[in-house]
């Protein structure tokens, strides 16, 4: 790390989950009138970056890939206190899987240059792969720390508390590095009172096309994606539950539940020796 800390936060704009369905005629995603939002864990990543900026100084840049309608979303990030924003917008980027997406983002990060810390949300609410942050790190050849709950900075290193299966661990990584941040690990601050004025201002977001990046167009977008979608469907509701309604006073209802639970516990297989107490 040289000079001031330069952080870059990757923000993905996603359609709101509950407003997306499958078009049964074409078997493609119907994003129709779905409203968009910044992917929630990416907001936690941005809050983590701004909190580091509050403590240690430095600056925060934003990077996103998507259509031009993403610009107002990046302005929201600027209103929260970020210093610069870049949007990668080109049809050539479209249809990318995680390999092509992480390559595109890594190419832009190289072009911006001098980034000490790349922060991402743990996963996106639309794809939920969680593979882009490690992918960016692999393309850039720098360390990665995923599922971060807390980040401290210490002499050019980061100390990251991260979630692991059944617990947590603290990792020490040199900078530059990529960190993915757990959803809800912090409370994203609301837009600054002064920052909100910038929501209506043009020219605050730099837009780049594929030609602006040093990347082979055959390695990005749909063309650069080794995986493809073989089928799509809406999740089915389960059928086959009894749906028996229990009625009465609370005490009567509780009594029926008690009888049924006891009966069920007796009839299902006995618990093993180690787990019963």
């Amino acid at each position: 790390m040289t000079g001031e800390l330069h952080m870059l936060v990757c923000l993905k704009v996603v359609p709101k989950s509950e407003e997306v369905g499958v078009d049964r005629a074409t078997n493609t995603l119907d994003r129709g009138n779905a409203r968009s939002e910044i992917n929630p864990p990416d907001m936690n990543a941005l809050e983590a970056a701004l909190a580091l900026k509050d403590r240690y100084g430095g600056r925060v840049s934003l990077l996103s890939m998507g259509p031009p309608f993403v610009v107002p979303m990046l302005r929201v990030g600027l209103a929260m206190g970020a210093d610069a924003a870049y949007l990668l917008s080109d049809r050539a980027f479209g249809g990318a899987d995680t390999l092509a997406t992480s390559l595109t983002l890594a190419s832009a990060i190289r072009k911006i240059g001098d980034i000490d810390l790349v922060l991402c949300g743990e996963e996106s609410s639309d794809g939920a792969t969680a593979q882009v942050p490690p992918g960016i790190a692999a393309w850039l050849g720098i360390p990665q720390v995923t599922y971060a709950m807390d980040i401290e900075l210490e002499r050019g290193h980061i100390l990251v508390t991260r979630e692991i299966r059944g617990g947590e661990e603290v990792l020490d990584a040199p900078l530059p590095a990529v960190v993915s941040v757990k959803v809800s690990c912090n409370q994203p601050r609301f837009m600054d009172v002064e920052g909100m004025a910038g929501l209506d201002r043009d020219g605050t977001v730099t837009t780049w096309t594929a030609a602006d990046l040093d990347v082979d167009v055959n390695h990005i977008g749909l063309a650069g994606s080794p995986t493809s979608v073989a089928g799509l469907r809406e999740a089915l509701q389960t059928v086959g539950r009894r749906r028996e309604v229990v009625t009465g006073t609370p005490e009567q209802e509780a009594h029926i539940l008690y009888e049924r639970i006891s009966e069920f516990v007796r009839s299902s297989s006995p618990r093993t020796q180690e787990t019963s107490t």
Binding site: K16, R35, M43, V76, N186, Q187, P188, R189, F190, M191
Partner: peptide, 18 residues
């Protein structure tokens, strides 16, 4: 001055997004 209780930000964000 950014000393408002953090959880209240989420109410304003809900208003903003939804």
């Amino acid at each position: 001055e950014r000393t408002a209780p953090g959880e209240l930000s989420s109410v304003l964000w809900d208003m903003h997004w939804d």
